[in-house]
Write a protein that binds this DNA or RNA. Structure first.
Lengths: 351, 351
DNA sequence: TGCGCGGATTGATACGTATTGATCGGGGAT
DNA sequence: ATCCCCGATCAATACGTATCAATCCGCGCA
């Protein structure tokens, strides 16, 4: 909390003195607003003084006047430059950085808030104020924090879908409903009747969307809603062979997996199926409703790709329109996914 | 440059009114300075008002008063979240983020300055002013920019060694001299007499350090300075079989390669040697004075590892001491490297 | 009683900018 | 000559905070 050191930088007042004009005129020259005229000759004198003294506008003073400081905050629950498993968030960040650069905004990473005491309101309260607005990212961000931010009227965009009762928050999310429904229709066309959705046990909105897609697709394909099962998994721990054989004995021929960051449940499912002698896709079709585990020599998982880079870009775009013209800006954006044709689903064989 | 939208946030004045004190008292309560006493009862009233109104200090006003805003700028020539070849800069950034978080600083990425018009002085001039100080990173940063920054008294730390005549700039760099000298001594012990240093053609300071290490090591080992050769390469283009055979015919038995980001020259050298029938390490010992290409099944390059994460951390530490106590802070920091024992050098065979 | 002392609080000010309403000066129209 | 208008400039002000000098008050001591 100490004072900054170093020699003081020149101010508009000093520019004004050197150019023989008032500080206001300097500000006018700098702002270059179309409506306000300023004589060409004085403009030149001012410009020259600026060059000579090496003047740079003071961002703090501008900000204090309530002007934009051209900075977008980026709040992630995890560290931004992670060591392991960086591929999950990384593409979002690429998109965010690209678009911020394109629109002339700098990027402020709220590192201190995260690790220190967790939560957006950790330090003095709302460290976010250093930025014009903020992009939030991360599965584990507190809902209370989001509510508070909305209440305070702080402009932000969440990456991923989050609905909070009673408040309209702004987010950019992939469309899980349409591709899930399409997948279900495809499975139905392949003869599948009894389909299981394996959700992440956190019960978050993306899972709701997938379940909605499941029901929509089933309806469109004329499947009975009674043949749709939904179960939950919290990772590798609760997926053994008995559970998988239980499904198969129950008549399930296709499993749709909601992916997690490490795709632990999906991999555990595959392992359990193999251990139980349930071959994929012959006896059991498996598809991932989002990013699948990496393909191997023999296995390409049927899935759809979340356009992460594009979502990152869109989040920044949305935030900037929110900042620059809050009235006529949309509140939410949905980005389509692209299918990945794999070899993990097949026509059902009557036995 | 428009005004920010949204409802105004509460200020210290409003806190003061609600608590029945003056704005100055509110500021005192907030600052918690040890020397200045404030009655316990009023402190509580103020704290309560702060809670109730959800007050958060205005960073712009603080900054305008000349206080630290707890933000470290990060200026990289290339984009911070690159798509390809991200492994070169990434470890530095991990270290920078870690240490910034640990010390309670946020990280400001100057994305806009880079891509937009290139150079630190791109936009209004010196966009860096939004941060307390800055960490600079990248091989291609302009020397003029560095000079200007020093002249302006802007606090910054460069990652990598850079010397600028007449000015003392602050940097954190790996120690290339000592491990290079050690490598030369080791080669001498293995019977090598005529040693070639293959420098990057940019002729930057890191290359000077390696050359210095070469001469120091030779001296310590009692080699003749006349047997030390120095050549330059600008990548894969200028390294053919003829050049390599030329060296061998000249009696060279060991080549020390200054690495580049993609290690193009090193890989080209290996390829050319193989094409010319010059086996490594039997006929020619090769070592990298820094990060080597990734090891393969049969080849582990002798080299030394630059502790990138550690350097990133050190840069932030140095910058913060520079900010908080410029007088008694060191200006430069040198970090030791660790050896990588490979199989690309061997005892020389008299023939 | 008067005096001084020190803890607690406050009024005033400066930080550097953007903006508004006012001022100034000159030229064209009446 | 008078008036008006417009282009060009300026003085003044507000933004929210930290800090310094000043004030106020109660109490112990002479």
């Amino acid at each position: 909390m100490r004072k900054r050191a170093g020699p003081r930088r020149p101010t508009q007042v000093e520019i004004a003195q050197r150019a023989g004009v008032s500080q206001a005129t300097v500000s006018l020259v700098l702002s270059e607003r179309p409506g306000v005229p300023v004589a060409e000759e004085t403009r030149q004198r001012v410009q020259q003084a600026i060059e000579e003294l090496g003047y740079a506008v003071n961002p703090a003073a501008r900000a204090l006047r309530g002007m934009s400081v051209k900075t977008i905050g980026l709040y992630t629950f995890e560290s931004v430059f992670p060591v392991d498993q960086r591929d999950f968030y990384h593409p979002f960040l690429v998109g965010v950085e690209e678009e911020a650069a394109r629109l002339g905004y700098d990027l402020l990473l709220f590192t201190s808030a995260n690790t220190a005491h967790g939560g957006v309101y950790a330090r003095g309260r709302n460290a976010l104020l250093k930025a014009d607005g903020c992009v939030l990212l991360g599965r584990h961000i507190s809902r209370d924090d989001l509510t508070n931010l909305v209440d305070e009227g702080f402009p932000f965009v969440f990456i991923g879908r989050r609905d909070i009762e009673g408040t309209e928050l702004s987010y950019v999310a992939p469309d899980y409903v349409a591709p899930t429904a399409a997948l279900v229709e495809e499975l139905a066309a392949l003869g599948h009747r009894r389909i299981l959705l394996l959700r992440q046990s956190d019960g978050a909105e993306p899972g709701d969307d997938r379940e909605l897609g499941l029901r929509r697709g089933a309806e469109a394909a004329g499947l009975s809603q009674d043949d749709l099962l939904v179960e939950y998994s919290s990772g590798a721990g609760d997926l053994g062979t008995d559970r998988v054989t239980g499904w198969v004995d129950d008549g399930v021929t296709a499993v749709l997996v909601e992916p997690s960051e490490d795709n632990a449940s999906g991999l555990a499912l595959a392992a359990a199926a193999e251990a139980a002698g349930v071959r994929i896709p012959d006896r059991l079709s498996v598809a991932f409703l989002g990013s699948a585990p990496p393909p191997t020599a023999t296995r390409i998982w049927t899935s759809f790709e979340i356009p992460r880079v594009e979502i990152g870009r869109a989040a920044v775009q949305l935030l900037v329109t929110l900042l620059e013209d809050a009235e006529r800006s949309p509140l939410q954006l949905v980005v389509p996914c692209t299918d990945v044709r794999g070899n993990s689903i097949s026509r059902v064989v009557r036995r």
